[in-house]
Design a protein around this nucleic acid. Sequence first.
DNA 1: AAGAAGTATTGCCCTAGAGCAACACTTTGA
DNA 2: TCAAAGTGTTGCTCTAGGGCAATACTTCTT
Lengths: 192, 192
Amino acid sequence: MNDVYVKLYDYLQRKTQVEKNAFLDYCHYFKLKTLKRNEVLLHQNTVCNFNIFVNKGCLRFYSYSDEGKELTRYFAFENKFGTSLTSLINQEPSNENIQAVEKSEVLIISRNDFYHLVKTIPEINLVYRDILEMAYITTTKRVYNFQGESALDRLKWLMKYQPFILTRLSNKMVASYLGITPYTLSRLKTEL
Amino acid sequence: MNDVYVKLYDYLQRKTQVEKNAFLDYCHYFKLKTLKRNEVLLHQNTVCNFNIFVNKGCLRFYSYSDEGKELTRYFAFENKFGTSLTSLINQEPSNENIQAVEKSEVLIISRNDFYHLVKTIPEINLVYRDILEMAYITTTKRVYNFQGESALDRLKWLMKYQPFILTRLSNKMVASYLGITPYTLSRLKTEL
DNA sequence: AAGAAGTATTGCCCTAGAGCAACACTTTGA
DNA sequence: TCAAAGTGTTGCTCTAGGGCAATACTTCTT
């Protein structure tokens, strides 16, 4: 198997039983793309018509508040899927930007091909369901965090459950993920 | 068709094409239950093993923050599905309570039966996908609201997109949904 | 019909976190 | 290799929203 697809295959294998031969038949729908640091894959106000699997590096999904603050929704590291789901699903202009935080290598599948696989390959149907369920669960957890926890508690939560976000990314990015300013983040770190 | 299932049938019909005869075959998995005002359907720390369709009334899904504040995640009005999805999916104790806000009438399907239908009836598979997608979209929107908008802006957003929440429910409930205190909500209303 | 319990409003004061400015430190790029 | 741009820290001040207490108003309950 082409090296490029090893991580995707392993990912699918972890989620469900995929037939190796079947995988070899459809994996060509995923096209390799390398991204420079800070390269933008999707600009907001553009309709998102692809889904992304990260082989290497890290993507960031963010938008802008009414006052122009950057709000980060999600970081996709190696072995994760990511897309502007709302735009992908509704085919309306995305309010999100997708940007490579580091030099990255990704596999991109078009919306049409992706939903074709979801419809025709039961394992991919299951994987998509899993993606949606997990995305829903983490997003819900995040809502509860914002609704009921202080910035310090959100930071502690992040340290416990997603420490790589803290170790691998700049303060500025972490702050925009936590919904606080870099000043506050800097101060909070001294309170840990 | 039994009156009790008319709303569910219409709901499915709106989402996809369901075969009436097939529907009559599987609708008996959904059991009718009537709930008194304030009756609790699921207590937190209990594993949720059912999915709910609301025929009449309104359910509230909420949990408690570390300091004991009530945090409301979702209100399910007529013709909506609702469950403690995180618990249902992972079969771990729920951190949510489900409570009838008003006298309500609901259809309940067990987890096993539900996933059985998802697996065997393509239309239900599609409906479940739709439920997950929509739940994800609104939850994501909510994260962005909390992350980047003021309480006043969140209130305005609510008035625009979910006005029935404001008109039909008490201030206290609305406040716990917006992540603010009833005091603040009361004050904000004068600023509109 | 009357007391009890819950809900809404408002005044007062307090706190978490924002915003700005200054400075030190890194990284980047020609 | 050296300027330029970005990043992190910290002092000072400000503001949105929280918390409490008092009062008015509803709504349950019996």
